[in-house]
């Protein structure tokens, strides 16, 4: 960080028009969501794929990796959001801006969250119906569990991507 160029840190002041600021809290949360689900899903698949290749399906040990993946994704969303929040607060303090007015959630964030939810909710009924059909076909529980987890993760990532696009490129309700 080149302090002299950006003139940081600055004293607390009222921001001028178009003064650059840090990424908002909800946008940060979206990024955390993408990383959390993408990484845990890839890790789960990485652990489980060699097992599928080597063992017969009904002996594939998938439960432990799945529990880890579930736990870690929830945990990393929580921890990631906290860290992102702290990073934002630090960034704002360095710029001499107020955390409450620059980082908090407002109606635009709710609108964008709702917009994303309306566009990506399809993943949920797909997961439920798909899992039901797989259960009816008496498929091995490994496939059902993996299907539920992977498609749900894709849905969560899609939700976050829609949100980030709305923040960056703008969206019309």
């Amino acid at each position: 960080m080149n302090n002299s160029k950006h003139n940081l840190p600055r004293e607390p002041h009222r921001p001028a028009d178009d003064e650059p600021t840090v990424m908002g809290m909800d946008e940060r949360a979206a990024w955390v969501q993408i990383f959390a689900f993408a990484i845990t899903t890839i890790a789960y698949l990485a652990v489980v794929t060699p097992r599928v290749a080597n063992d017969p399906i009904d002996e594939v040990e998938w439960v432990v990796p799945m529990l880890w993946a579930l736990g870690l994704s929830i945990l990393s969303v929580i921890v990631g959001s906290i860290i992102a929040g702290i990073g934002g607060a630090i960034g704002l303090t360095m710029r001499g801006l107020d955390v409450d007015t620059e980082l908090s959630s407002d109606s635009r964030d709710k609108d964008i969250a709702r917009h994303a939810r309306l566009r990506t909710y399809w993943a949920t009924p797909v997961v439920a119906l798909g899992a039901l059909i797989l259960a009816m076909l008496d498929v091995d529980t490994f496939w059902i569990g993996t299907f539920v987890f992977v498609i749900s993760s894709i849905g969560a990532i899609a939700d976050a991507v829609v949100r980030i696009r709305a923040y960056r490129r703008g969206f019309v309700a």
Partner: peptide, 29 residues
């Protein structure tokens, strides 16, 4: 539809946990 999806999502999560606990597929379904 997005309001209804919330409950269905809960069902999927419960089903996933049941699968890890080796509950019979009847209950999962």
């Amino acid at each position: 539809e997005s309001a209804g999806a919330g409950l269905a999502g809960l069902g999927s999560l419960a089903a996933l946990i049941m699968l890890t606990l080796d509950v019979d597929t009847f209950w999962v379904a």
